[in-house]
Design a binder for these strands. Structure first.
Length: 168
DNA sequence: GCCAACGTTGGC
DNA sequence: GCCAACGTTGGC
């Protein structure tokens, strides 16, 4: 039987920032099915990436910001592509946005699933000391985007530094 | 706590 | 559309 396959899209890679007091990689591991909707993103550039660029199967580095230590703590993958963020319509949510119209949603999320925690947090300081990561967006001055693209070379180097196999 | 960098708001 | 004021992010 023939099957018309979608044009191949190479797997892409991303980094999600999160404050661990808000939601940590441990929280993702503890979530039902180790999955969560990555809700609460309220920045248009990050929204555009979530809505338009992330695809099922993409790799995600989970990074703890405003934390001690500042570090990548785990690997996740995208299990559902961009769809409206329900917390934008929930008056009880801290992320409620009264200006967002359910008929034309402003804010989007993806669903991710924990793949594996890093054996040890991979410290920002360690990343910053790595010549091959000098151009990584996370490490650029004033880099605030909470959903960032990661190149394949950066991804591979980071998993190597973390001592994690990339064959999932 | 500081403050640079960046994003958003809103008057004009 | 400009841009000053203000708010937030986030490393240090």
């Amino acid at each position: 039987m023939t099957r018309r396959s979608a044009p191949e899209r190479p797997r892409r890679y991303w980094l999600f920032k999160t404050e661990p007091g808000e939601f940590s990689f441990a929280d993702l591991l503890a979530a039902p099915r180790r999955r969560t909707g990555w809700d609460g993103v309220r920045n248009y550039q990050a929204r555009n990436l979530l809505r338009d660029e992330l695809a099922v199967g993409d790799g995600v580095l989970i990074y703890h910001s405003s934390a001690d230590p500042l570090a990548i703590t785990g690997i996740a993958r995208v299990t559902r592509a961009g769809h409206p963020d329900p917390t934008a319509f929930a008056p009880d949510s801290a992320h409620f946005d009264p200006k967002s119209d359910p008929e034309s949603p402003t804010w989007y999320q993806v669903e991710i699933e924990a793949v594996i925690p890093l054996p040890e947090p991979l410290l920002r300081a360690r990343l910053a000391a790595e010549p091959q990561l000098r151009k990584m967006m996370l490490l650029q001055r004033g880099s605030r985007l909470s959903v960032q693209p990661v190149t394949a070379a950066e991804w591979e180097r980071i998993l190597q530094l973390a001592g994690v196999r990339a064959d999932w």
